[in-house]
């Protein structure tokens, strides 16, 4: 699940080496945590959260295929 987030985040950030994605199981499915350099936060969130929203949509598809749910948190 996290490789999708990692690919997108590393592609669109100025400091891809600072991108850290972790994944943990919770009661409500998989929780993905995305951490980026402070200056990159705006890039992975986007204006009005548009980038984050798009990432969440794609994750949801992947989670649905795996018959689970996934949440994305941006730290």
């Amino acid at each position: 699940m996290k490789d999708l987030v990692e690919y997108i985040a590393k592609s669109i950030t100025a400091e891809p080496d600072e991108v850290k994605v972790t994944e943990e199981d919770s009661d409500e499915g998989i929780l993905i945590k995305l951490e980026v350099a402070p200056d990159d936060k705006g890039r992975v969130i986007g204006k009005q959260g548009r980038v984050a929203e798009a990432m969440r949509t794609l994750i949801r598809v992947k989670a649905a295929r795996a018959e689970t749910r996934a949440r994305l948190e941006i730290l």
């Binding site: 997108i8 592609s11 980038v51 990432m55 949509t57 794609l58």
Partner: peptide, 20 residues
């Protein structure tokens, strides 16, 4: 699956592709 509800998945896929 790729189109999604009201084309939402397709829009997101297009948007992320553009960004990357």
């Amino acid at each position: 699956l790729l189109i999604g509800h009201r084309g939402q998945t397709l829009s997101s896929l297009e948007y992320i592709t553009k960004l990357v």
